[in-house]
Write a protein that binds this DNA or RNA. Sequence first.
DNA 1: ACCCTCACCTGCACGC
DNA 2: TGCGTGCAGGTGAGGG
Length: 289
Amino acid sequence: MPELPEVEHVVRALRRILPGRKILASQIKLPKLVAPLTPLRFNRQIKGARIDAVSRRGKFILIECQKPDRKGGQSAKSSTGKNKIVLAVHLRMTGKFLYLTPDDELPKHSHAIFYLDNDRRLVFRDQRQFGVIKLIDADSLPQTKGIKELAPEPFGDEFNEKYLKATLKNSRRTLKTLLLDQTKVLGLGNIYAAEALFRAGVNPFKSASQLSSRRTAALYQSIREVLSFAVDNIRGESLRAGFSYGEVFERFWQVYEREGEPCFKCGARIRRKQHGGRSTYWCPRCQRR
DNA sequence: ACCCTCACCTGCACGC
DNA sequence: TGCGTGCAGGTGAGGG
């Protein structure tokens, strides 16, 4: 159930194994995973493609591929050519990648299997079936619905204090809700949104437009710090069956899942409240306003 | 344009 | 043991 830092780790892991590999065939066991394509059409498009690179946009994993030409070889065209396609994968809540050896058994909830040219299988596993795999022409990726609306990358120059101030000023929603909106602030999920607000000492239920300039600056810093700390400190889960990525097992949360426990800063009991259908955790003393 | 609620799924922990 | 309830780190459709 990854937020941006976990996705970043998945990307780094895939980057170590996938570039240069060829996808011999795909097997899609859950058709809605690749909708609106059918598994058959999906496989026709991806079959024979060579993986060039793995990158990320927000929480989307982008596996960039070069399609073979009609004779079956790789296209002679360069990477700017029309034959570039991208697998845009969103893990949502429970999506994971596995990299299986021929001896490994296919675990439950393995919905997509990519047969690679080194005898390995790249498997997409997803218990809750919320995950998505889109197959997109590289050229149209920036205009793709779901991607074009995304806010600037949180580690890029465009996401700066000025941007956050303008974004908050325009919203009458609460800070917590706004931080979860990927078209406004990119990369946070329910955990890191709570952690960033705690770190900034700001109340999650405060109206976004009413946050003072000083506190907005603090929140901006906190968002970047929480995300980069997580990127630096989480570790992937290893599995006997090859390996899997997309799971955190080192936890360093200050408020998330700590209802009733003492705040590390002031000792007050951490509170939890349902807000917009999700749990919000905060320290009633450190985050009074 | 914005914002809220619900829906999408499986599985786990909990109380009775 | 079993069954009901609530909960889970994400987002999109559909409605007001």
